[in-house]
């Protein structure tokens, strides 16, 4: 190729200096353009239509313990998507066995079971599922999990109290209904 190198030296191309889109951005564009969300979930893009790598999803469960509540999740998509799952945090302080008070979410497809064939739609449905079927076997909030296991009625009362901005034990929550 040395011949070509010499040619290039003489007539250096004036390549357009605009960044091309990365593979992660393209794949995300496809995911987002195909979103098909249930009525109870809505998505917003705080940085406008051209930044799809950061967005928020609002979930308003229409059944189960959390009916009537509004829960906001932030999504951060890495440049390595879809080979790495997005980072998802719950921005609303919540009393939930699988979400801790810092907003960490224990959902298998966000960590150990993530696969590149999954997409943003699957994650949002997964999150929605956490509200209809909270699971005491994979606890992140140990106390909430124990109550759900031993006394589901009390768990329901605690959820209602947390959502209306009260205390559960020593922990205070903000109103999210």
């Amino acid at each position: 190729m040395i011949k070509l190198f010499k040619v290039k030296e003489k007539q250096r191309e004036n390549a357009e200096n605009a960044k091309k889109q990365t593979a992660a951005e393209l794949r995300l564009h496809k995911d987002i353009s195909e979103l098909n969300l249930p009525k109870s979930c809505s998505i917003t893009f705080p940085n406008g239509k051209d930044d799809l790598m950061n967005f928020e999803v609002l979930i308003r469960p229409d059944e189960g313990y959390y009916v009537g509540g509004k829960f906001l999740f932030s999504f951060q998509v890495s440049p390595h998507y879809p080979h790495e799952a997005p980072k998802v945090k719950c921005k609303t302080k919540i009393y939930h066995p699988n979400i801790d008070l810092e907003g960490n979410v224990c959902l298998n497809i966000l960590r150990e079971d993530w696969k590149p064939v999954l997409n943003i739609n699957t994650i949002i449905y997964g999150l929605y599922h956490l509200f209809t079927e909270p699971n005491y076997e994979d606890p992140l909030n140990h106390d909430a999990a124990a109550v759900l296991r031993d006394n589901p009625v009390l768990f329901g009362t605690n959820v209602k109290r947390a959502m209306s901005g009260g205390f559960v034990g020593h922990t205070s929550f903000s109103r999210c209904t």
Binding site: A18, Q21, K30, I32, L35, F45, K49, D50, L52
Partner: peptide, 22 residues
């Protein structure tokens, strides 16, 4: 089809919020 050019989303079929913006 949704269309993107050099990081600018020219048209998005979904979700509704982006469809409206484009």
């Amino acid at each position: 089809a949704s269309v993107t050019h050099r990081g600018k989303n020219l048209y998005m079929q979904a979700p509704p919020v982006l469809e409206e913006m484009t």
